[in-house]
Amino acid sequence: MLELRLVQGSILKKVLESIKDLVNDANFDFSSSGLTLQSMDSSHIALVALLLKSEGFEHYRCDRNTSMGMNLGNMSKMLKCAGNDDILTIKGDDVSDTVTFMFTSDLVREIFFYKIADFEMKLMDIDNEHLGIPEAEYHAIVKMPSAEFARICKVLASIGDTGDIGTANIVLRQNTTVDKPEDATVIEMNEPVSMTFALRYMNTFTKATPLSNTVTISLSPDLPVVVKYKIAEMGYVRFYLTPKMEE
């Protein structure tokens, strides 16, 4: 028996929008501590790791560890049927090969338009390869406004990486003299680090911008970069990307 209720159903919608362009099919792993997902893109150079802790759900019942394979494109289509203010309930069981998403509008504010919609989606068998990602010390950790990071990635990608139209150089300095803490740029540097990454992937990661006002980018020369979007009170979406290096 699996039953989860998320008052802010829009969180799962945003999670799906942030990962569906990177990964087509993925296993959602449910345990008593929460919902996790780990999946690589088809070229195996980028990885997404999701955590939604059980405490972040209004109701969370998971009698035994369950893994559900879902097509993220189809799941996104179903979640798009939910209003942004809808409460989302996910239901599953051990015998059927389907998962049910139920959307209910807020009873208090929409008392005259009370609505329940449910969508049943077929599950699939996915042979998911898991990677063990150890905790690591990073040379540099940058915490900055997520919208600013998205803008920088977009601008650089539009200029391109061939040098045909010229070059772009963006310097981001630490800035903590801001009214709101989420507007700060904080650079923790233990050692200088210089790395090259595929902007196409970075741009895909920035689809997670609506999930968090800030993003944390952790860099070490011998490790994939980690781009982390914290989901308030619930967990995170983390993206890993291998660096481009001289062969």
């Binding site: 150079i45 990885l47 291998t242 290096m245 001289e246």
Partner: peptide, 14 residues
Amino acid sequence: GLEQSDLGSYFMRF
């Protein structure tokens, strides 16, 4: 040129 390695060369597969 610049090349990208598989994630498996950084993290352990299981």
